[in-house]
């Protein structure tokens, strides 16, 4: 699962919908893989305004990456700065979680990830 996708995931449990702690989910015992993907600058520019930068900083620290700048780059900066584009592409698209767990900060529910597929099936009493 891409780090980009993790930035959009929330806890699926009903009671967590109203809680602020249910986002972002916290990776636990994560095994990472780098997958070589072709860079798609237009997509990154399109997606950037929707990325929750605070959550992305938390996630990247939790995954053991160097700390990200405090402010997200603006679209103009991204378009002009090749290096920044490469870095973001590497973090958001190429870094993938293959094994591990995602833990909700509110209810503590653990979503298992196996072979890159996260299991979001819930027992019916939590829906």
């Amino acid at each position: 699962m891409k780090v980009l996708t993790l930035n959009f995931l929330t806890c699926a449990v009903k009671d967590c919908k109203s809680s602020n702690n249910s986002f972002p989910l916290h990776p636990k015992d994560a095994e990472l893989v780098y997958d070589d993907l072709e860079i798609n600058p237009q997509l990154l520019v399109n997606v950037l305004p929707r990325v929750d930068w605070v959550a992305l900083r938390t996630t990247s620290t939790e995954l053991g990456f160097p700390e990200l700048p405090e402010q997200p780059p603006t679209v103009e900066e991204l378009e002009s700065d090749e290096k920044m584009l490469q870095d973001l592409h590497k973090l958001l698209m190429e870094t993938q979680i293959m094994e591990g767990k995602l833990v909700c900060g509110n209810c503590g529910h653990e979503y298992a990830i196996r072979e890159g597929i996260a299991n979001f099936l819930l027992p019916s009493h939590l829906v």
Partner: peptide, 23 residues
């Protein structure tokens, strides 16, 4: 997985909702 698709996959039941944040 065996066909090596590019998208991220989730094992989830659509009848239980869509676990992504707004927008």
């Amino acid at each position: 997985l065996q066909r090596d698709v590019e998208g991220d996959l989730f094992l989830a039941d659509m009848g239980q909702g869509v676990p992504f944040r707004a927008g």
